[in-house]
């Protein structure tokens, strides 16, 4: 398996020394994100998130399947993450690295286990038919902070997604095409976002938001907090690394809440903008034969 290329000694020393002097290599503040850009595709459920030079694309799809035998009233909801060699040559297909496992686990905990999507609303016929919603996460470019970018992409894709409308008539299930009936959005309960802190220094006393790939290779520890804009924390993951002071962690969650509020507002604004772009003025306007001149 190809190993990830390590930064040179000179770079490692410089990054650590500059952080001691309150400087980051790209001139950002410690609690400043790189510009987060979000765009939607022509189809429903495609979200493209760019965070500096990191780029993640998420695509949501839905199909009708049989529910799990032990959960006859619930739909199926899966998040598939696969890091391809396109993101970095050290990622191999069908051989998950530690990064990939951690990423899918964190997304699972943040989005699925926090009940962001109401899976009961995906049930069509109890025990027989349900919707299976699947989100595929594709990492197109990797320059650090994959977790935050992927989580934002997954949430944006699911909020943007529309599943086909259905009806039950005398035991017959009908799935309508978009031309017959307008597709319906998912039953969405809250929007969690991940905020990752990276810790530097001997004691882990320097906390930095949105680390680049070089910074991620040098850090002594990291902590991912997932929360929604109401301040409800879905999960905190601090997987190994240098121990961090509890009070400092509390301070980190406060800053994270401010960032999550910004993300939520941005996502709402982008969704409204996209809805406006798609709205052609109702059914009659769409049926009009007249051309734009």
């Amino acid at each position: 398996m190809p190993r990830e290329a390590e930064p040179s000694l000179n770079e490692k020393q410089f990054v650590a020394q500059a952080l001691q002097e309150n400087l980051r290599l790209d001139g950002r503040e410690f609690d400043q994100y790189r510009p987060l850009e979000l765009s939607f595709g022509d189809q429903y459920g495609v979200a493209d998130v760019t965070l500096g030079r990191t780029r993640v694309l998420a695509k949501a799809t839905a199909e009708v399947t049989v529910p799990y035998a032990d959960r006859p009233l619930d739909g199926v909801f899966t998040i598939a993450t696969e890091l391809s060699p396109m993101a970095s040559p050290s990622f191999e297909v069908n051989r998950p690295t530690e990064t990939e496992v951690l990423l899918s686990r964190l997304l699972e905990k943040t989005v699925r286990r926090s009940g962001a999507l109401d899976t009961e609303s995906l049930c069509l016929v109890a025990g027989q038919k349900c919707w299976s919603v699947r989100v595929d996460v594709h990492v197109l470019a990797h320059d650090g902070n994959l977790i935050d970018a992927s989580c934002a992409a997954v949430v944006a894709a699911l909020r943007h997604f529309r599943k086909p409308d259905t009806s039950m008539d005398a035991g017959v299930l009908t799935v309508y095409t978009p031309a017959e009936r307008e597709p319906v959005p998912l039953s969405w309960l809250h929007s969690p976002f991940c905020v990752t802190w990276s810790f530097f220094g001997e004691e882990g006393d320097i906390a930095v938001l949105d680390a680049t790939w070089l910074e991620e290779q040098v850090r002594v520890g990291s902590c991912t907090v997932s929360l929604n804009k109401h301040g409800e924390i879905c999960q905190i993951a601090k997987l190994g690394g240098t121990p961090v002071d509890a009070v400092a962690l509390l301070q980190c969650t406060n800053v994270a809440l401010a960032r999550v509020k910004e993300f939520s507002d941005m996502l709402d604004a982008k969704l409204a903008e996209d809805a406006k772009r798609r709205d052609k003025g109702g059914f009659m306007a769409e049926l009009r034969a007249e051309n734009d001149r």
């Binding site: 000179n10 410089f14 500059a18 002097e21 400087l23 001139g27």
Partner: peptide, 16 residues
């Protein structure tokens, strides 16, 4: 490209 200087701020500015 390697940028060297006594001051870290200078290195970062030149690199950026």
């Amino acid at each position: 490209v390697w940028v060297g200087s006594e001051s870290a701020a200078t290195v970062i500015v030149v690199g950026r």
